[in-house]
Amino acid sequence: MKKTFVILAALACATAAPSFAQTRMAPVGATKTPAERAERQTQALTKQLGLSPEQEPKVESILQAQMTDLQALNEKYPAGNRRGLGPELKASKAKYDEQLKAVLTPEQFAKLEQLRQERMQKMRDRRK
């Protein structure tokens, strides 16, 4: 009886372990649509910049268009071949920054720029 129990326990562990090993988490942001990412970012900007109820839908539509464009660029330039991506990213950022300037107050836009600079500095610090 004891021997049978040990064999069954070993068999259960042997068949269960591979099933746990094969489950993987999706990369962050990989499964979210541009609309979902834009909504999440709008919520964060609402807290950080104090967006008014009138500004929220405008900012969200701008961010959704930007996320859609970024997704298209990501598909256009696969991971192994990113040459030419830089100028297109800069043009995209300038386009959407102009749209955001039209919606945000000067104080909010300055705060947005400050938040971006802080995020870039954190990324540089992590790379060191």
Rank of each mutant, 00 (worst) to 15 (best):
A44E: 11
N81C: 05
L85P: 01
E39G: 14
Q71I: 10
P27E: 14
V28S: 14
E39M: 15
L49Q: 08
G29Y: 10
E56F: 12
L45Q: 01
Q48A: 08
A26K: 09
P57Q: 05
Y96M: 00
P106W: 03
R37M: 08
R37S: 00
K3P: 06
R37V: 09
Q48C: 01
R126N: 11
M123W: 09
R83V: 10
A38D: 01
V6T: 12
E75G: 14
S92G: 02
L45A: 06
P87H: 00
R116F: 10
K128Q: 08
L45D: 04
T31H: 09
A65Y: 04
E118G: 02
K47F: 15
Q121K: 09
K58I: 13
A94P: 02
A110Y: 12
Q114S: 12
E36Q: 10
T23R: 13
A72Y: 00
P57R: 03
R124Q: 07
R82Q: 10
G86K: 10
G50V: 07
G29C: 06
N74H: 13
A21H: 09
M120D: 12
A30S: 13
A79M: 11
Q121N: 08
A65E: 09
A44V: 11
L100G: 02
P57E: 09
L85N: 03
L73W: 04
L100Y: 03
G80R: 05
K32Q: 15
E36A: 09
V103N: 03
S52L: 02
L100Q: 06
L11H: 04
M25G: 07
P53Q: 08
L45H: 00
A44R: 13
V28P: 14
Q117H: 11
K111V: 14
P87I: 04
M25K: 09
A91C: 01
A44D: 10
L73F: 00
S92M: 08
A14D: 04
R40S: 12
K47D: 13
K128M: 11
Q64E: 11
N81I: 04
